[in-house]
Amino acid sequence: MTATEDAVQEEAATDPVREAIAQSFADELGDGFIAQHINPGSDLWIRIAASSWVDAARFARDKLGMNWIDFISAIDWMPNPYGREMEAEQDWVVHGGGPNDKDESDAEKMTTGVTGGDTRFQMFMRLYSTEEHIGVTIKADVPDEAPAIETLIPVFVGASWHEREVWEMFGIDIIGHPDKRVLYLPTGFEGNPMRKDFPLVARRVKPWPGIVDVEAMPGDGDGDGDSAADAATDAEDAS
């Protein structure tokens, strides 16, 4: 990186355009607006209350010209309850630890991304303006008990399939969706696969080879020292 580009970075450290957008959301939504995060020159996140979900989308479409719906999805912030068990033996070499070495403290501290969050599930959508070429990611917490959110179909017709996907994958109820049928999963599928506590059976039955190449790369293993493959082999020998 050259000095001039550094200077550009310095300049871009404030981003008036995105700040103005965030401010206009704050003005419009009032108490519904909770947090914002700006990556200068790159991206904008805001977090709103679930009750303002549809209003925010309508405001963005009508007043900010964000006419293009990118996607709607959800995040399950719960740390993986299966812990290290999901990783391969080679990975323990890199990380340390073992199959039963579950970090209990992790389960308690649930970290929730750039704009924070209070609940396990968070909806997020991304809207974009095809005129101004600027986008915003809008997040909203949904309650842990019976997660549900209102449908965006009245604002963006294209929300339908995205919401069906969220509904089946995360089990977040979409209030007012006229066509709540499974999109990808077979009819009668039980569970919500994208939830963190839904086990990935393949990984549980047979450990994945892990980050390290199973076969040593050419040149590895003859003494260049930093090879994790060597370390893995050593660990296996020791056990």
Binding site: N67, I69, F71, T130, F156, V157, G158
Partner: peptide
Amino acid sequence: DVATSYGL
């Protein structure tokens, strides 16, 4: 306008 609201 239909195209954008479907996210095409």
